[in-house]
Structures are given as C-alpha cells and as structure tokens.
Amino acid sequence: MIRTIYIEREVADHSRTRKICDKFADAVKIQCERYGEVFNPKAQNFRLQKRRPALVLARKHNGMVLKTPEGYGIGDNHNYYFSHMLNCIYDCRYCFLQGMYRSAHYVLFVNYEDFETAIVSKISEANGETISFFSGYDCDSLALEPITGFVEHVLPLFARYRNAFFELRTKSTQVRSLLRTEPLPNCVVAFSFTPQEISAALENNVPPVAKRVDTMVRLQRQGWRLGLRFDPMIYHQDYQAHYRRLFSDLFQRLDAERLHSVTLGAFRLPAPYHRNLLRLYPDERLFATTLEPSNGMVSYKAPIRDEMIAFCEQELQRYVAPDICFSCSTL
C-alpha cells in the first residue's frame, strides 16, 4: 500500500521510524530535512497524488495541541485537538483536507511522547476542570492505527487523567487496539456516517456502513462509549428516506441509551478550501450545486440547511434523548 516513504533526517533512527520502515520493506525510502520540503511546495496536485500517496515520517516541533475551531466541541469550555497525522487513507470528496493541503501524502509525526507532554500540560492548566481533546481533525483517528499504534500509545495517559475527555473520530473498522484495552469512561469513539448511497458515491475506500455498524456493536458490547457523527450531512433528492433508513439501521443494532452523543452538521467548507476543491474536482456533483458563502464558510442555502437539520433532529428523537443531540453550526 505504501510504496514511498520520506523520512526526516532527525527521526531516521527513531524506533518508530525503524518499525514502520520494516513493515514496508519494499518501499522506496527517501531522506529529507523537513517534511515541509515534500509536503508544502506549491506546484503539487492533490488529486494526482491521491492515486499513490507516500508516507512521510516526521517530527512535530510545536503546535502539538491546539484550540478547536469554533463549533467543533460539544459544550465544554476547554476544547483542544491534536493531529499525529496529516491526511487520510480514505478519500471523501467532501473532506476539507483536500482543500487545505497541497499534498495528499500522509504525514505521521513519530514523536508521540511530545504529544503526551503537551496534553498533560494542557490538563494541568485546566486546574481540574473538564478538558476535551479531539483526535482525528487532520486525519481519521484509527484508519492507520495498525501501522502507527498512536491510539494504543495515548490511551494509558487518558486512563490516568479522568478529568480529560478524549474523542476519537473515525470511519474505520481498525479497532483492535481498543478491543485489547479496558474501556475508558472518559474516552468516546465517535463514528461518522452518511447514508450508504452517499457513502458509496462520495466516501472512497471507506468501509461500508454495515461493517462500521458491526464494529460499533463490538465496541459497545465491550463497554466503550460511542458517539455518532452525522456531519457532514449531504443534501440530495431522497435525503429524508436515506437518513431515515440510516438511523433505523444504526439504532436497530446499537444501544441508544448507552450512546455518549450524537452530532449533526450540514456540509460546509471554509471558502478558500471550497475554491481549491472546485479547481481539483470540477466534475464533482457535490460541488455542482448552489452553495452559499456565509462568515467565511460555504454551505447549502440556509433554508436547505435548516430543513435538513430539523428533519434529522426530529427523526433522531425517535431513538435518542434530546440532551445528547447536538447540532454543529459555524455559519
């Protein structure tokens, strides 16, 4: 799967670098000074690179833990995110990463210990107040877990700090490291869904909805707290029927009473990323519709957005308590 690995000189001898390189013995290994030399040059085409992305092993020097953008958390005062990876092995057409980065290569920061230090320092600063950490902002939290082992590495930290809430966000079924671990009450594994019709059209390489539901059931049985993320919600002719069926399929299998949270959000993108995506995918149906700019973001027209959210909120009320349902809006 990985045929090229770029390695920052500084991490060339890191034990994780060596372990990962051993897993891809046949990959071409190329040394670089800083990952930005490979990842940031202007003359790159995300769409062409996505055909065969490389892995870049690097060290993150600063900005390990950052404040979440507005509207990302679900109520706590202290919301932070961290990204041990940039980019994703999946290829969702609505994903903002395609508009944000010039390169489709996967960057993995191997200095996990520095992430831990930064997380602990934020926890101390919170003086015992609840503090939330979100993983999976610049990548899928679990999709490359068998290679990175990052989640397995940080779970013990959250086991020690119970006032720190930790959310993994994923579309993956790679949960072996979670199934090997005692469930943590302060950790939520949040799965993102669109109806299978949308997933098939827009979420390339993502496991089918049914497989992801199976995975959720296994985790829930073991005692893991789960979240559901219907974000982005994609507007289309039959959205009501499709979302209704998706909810019904999910809640037939999951114990709704043990869910941590459910969030909803209409498809939206920061305006500059939307412009980049239009250039990359002029042939994409998702963007071939009237999207409206508002507060630096681009989304469906307000009546469509409101109608979709209202419909889904109402449908969800059949299954889950309203106090665990949240609508994300940054518009």
Binding site: R3, T4, Y6, V28, I30, C32, E33, E37, V38, P41, Q44, L48, Q49, R51, R52, A54, S103, H105
Partner: peptide
C-alpha cells in the same frame, strides 16, 4: 536546496 518529484506511478 532539494526537490522531491512525487512518485505517483509504478516505477
């Protein structure tokens, strides 16, 4: 200065 031609095809 270094450049890294992206290898997006079978070599």
């Amino acid at each position: 200065r270094s450049w890294y031609p992206p290898l997006t095809f079978e070599l």
